[in-house]
Simulated assay, not measured.
Amino acid sequence: MDQPVIVVRGRLARRVWEEAGRLGVSVDEYVAELLSQGLDPKDKALEYVEAATALLG
């Protein structure tokens, strides 16, 4: 399955890269964490399983 692409430029992009680096995680991991913050714990766990499966597969 092709992954959709999201383009973020400028200051916001630099901020994402810097914060991910500061936390020692990939940009993908950092953005996934930001987007899943408001999810129900069960839904959040399902998102992590799906992301992990995609990375391994």
Rank of each mutant, 00 (worst) to 15 (best):
W17P: 00
W17C: 09
W17E: 15
E18K: 09
E19D: 13
E19H: 06
E19S: 10
A20Q: 11
A20H: 03
A20S: 06
A20Y: 04
G21T: 09
G21M: 03
G21L: 06
G21E: 13
R22D: 01
R22N: 05
R22K: 10
L23R: 15
L23Q: 15
G24A: 08
V25Q: 05
V25T: 03
V25G: 01
V25K: 02
S26G: 04
S26A: 11
S26V: 00
V27S: 04
V27E: 12
V27T: 02
D28K: 06
D28N: 10
E29Y: 00
E29G: 01
E29T: 10
E29L: 01
Y30C: 02
Y30A: 02
Y30S: 04
Y30N: 07
V31C: 05
V31D: 01
V31I: 05
A32I: 00
A32K: 04
A32E: 05
A32P: 00
A32C: 01
E33C: 06
E33G: 14
E33V: 11
E33D: 15
L34P: 02
L34R: 13
L35K: 04
L35W: 07
L35S: 05
L35P: 06
L35N: 06
S36N: 08
S36L: 06
S36H: 09
S36T: 14
Q37D: 07
Q37S: 12
Q37R: 15
Q37W: 09
G38Q: 04
G38H: 05
G38C: 03
L39C: 09
L39H: 08
L39Q: 04
L39T: 07
D40Y: 03
D40W: 04
D40M: 03
D40I: 01
P41N: 07
P41D: 07
P41E: 13
P41K: 08
P41R: 07
P41M: 06
K42N: 09
K42E: 15
K42P: 03
K42S: 14
K42H: 15
K42F: 15
D43T: 10
D43M: 11
D43P: 00
A45Y: 10
A45S: 12
A45K: 12
A45F: 12
A45I: 04
L46C: 07
L46M: 15
L46A: 14
L46V: 09
L46K: 11
E47I: 10
E47R: 10
E47V: 12
E47G: 00
E47N: 00
Y48C: 00
Y48E: 13
Y48T: 03
Y48S: 09
V49I: 14
V49H: 13
V49M: 13
E50M: 11
E50A: 14
E50I: 02
A51F: 14
A51E: 10
A51V: 01
A51N: 06
A51S: 04
A51G: 02
A52E: 11
A52F: 12
A52H: 12
A52W: 14
T53Y: 13
T53D: 13
A54Q: 15
A54K: 14
A54Y: 10
A54E: 15
